[in-house]
Design a protein around this nucleic acid. Structure first.
Lengths: 155, 155
DNA sequence: ATTTTGTAATCAATGGCATCCACAGCACTC
DNA sequence: GAGTGCTGTGGATGCCATTGATTACAAAAT
């Protein structure tokens, strides 16, 4: 994990479809060397995969919400976590310190979908004490990119 | 935006580096036709870009937090939004209905970074009435993928 | 000090892929 | 029925990814 690896990560976050030749140009290496580096980062799990970023609203998923969930006891946690993995509308699920146990970020087509998720899917689980839903009026910024500093050195 | 486009979106979300030849195979089209379809989706803004998914913890950004921000008046909103765009640690910023005005998701290296963001960056802005920070103990699920239904078939 | 070993790079060759162009099928319009 | 625009196919071309052989260098061992 040296300075070149940082450059690679910044480059592939910026353009996930960059060619090895272009990347090699940025790094000052040959393309096989660049491809080798990337392959190693993938094998280490530092690069988890590649994806296209889709505009949720254009795709018909204009309604976002944050749902804070309080679980009664650890007993029912397993079923909850399985449901979280199962539902594609749940984009994020964070275990949090504070008043609530989990915070979910969901994206759905409209209030009907949201109602189904809260009233049917979540509330049907035995251990859920309460949920607190916050509607997202608009998303100002949304990136999966890790905040690497513009230039960072190896550890 | 027909059934083939849905297949494309699902395919490129699943693998952002898929080749046109592979994609064409999934769609039952020729590769130039597949590439054309994708190009059009990019031009209409439905595909916003491509990125590598990086493991935040491996990259040294193991501390996540949700910060609820209350703004005093719309007068200072502009400066706040500019700061949000500027700080790379802020991965998401949602304008929300409810008690608070905005909810931020941040990723940083440790409490020192978090302190800096809250105490220096945010609190230095004039219009911010209060912030409420929730530490993320662990992330169960985190994907930027839009929740397209698994099968929205072709004719 | 020399050898050994492992890592990481370059170079050259090959096979596959993206890309471009010309042309064909089809629906819609006038 | 001819015109027009959209969408896809097929083939040619040039670039790129990938592989294997080889070299350079650093650290460890004898």
């Amino acid at each position: 994990m040296d300075a070149i690896d940082y450059k690679i990560i910044r480059a592939v976050m910026d353009n996930g479809r960059i060619t090895w030749a272009e990347l090699a140009g940025l790094l000052g290496l040959s393309s096989p060397a660049a491809a080798d580096r990337v392959r190693k980062l993938e094998e280490q799990g530092l690069i988890k995969g590649y994806t296209a970023l889709i505009d949720a609203e254009s795709a018909g998923y204009g309604l976002g919400a944050l749902i804070a969930v309080s679980l009664e006891r650890p007993a029912h946690r397993q079923a909850f976590l399985e449901l979280v993995q199962k539902l594609p509308e749940i984009q994020e699920c964070h275990h949090t310190a504070g008043d609530d146990d989990y915070v979910l970020k969901v994206r759905c087509r409209g209030t009907r979908d949201l109602d189904r998720i809260i009233s049917e899917e979540l509330k049907s689980l035995p251990g859920i004490v309460r949920t607190r839903t916050t509607i997202i009026l608009g998303t100002v910024k949304e990136t999966p990119n890790v905040p690497l500093p513009p230039s960072e050195q190896a550890p």
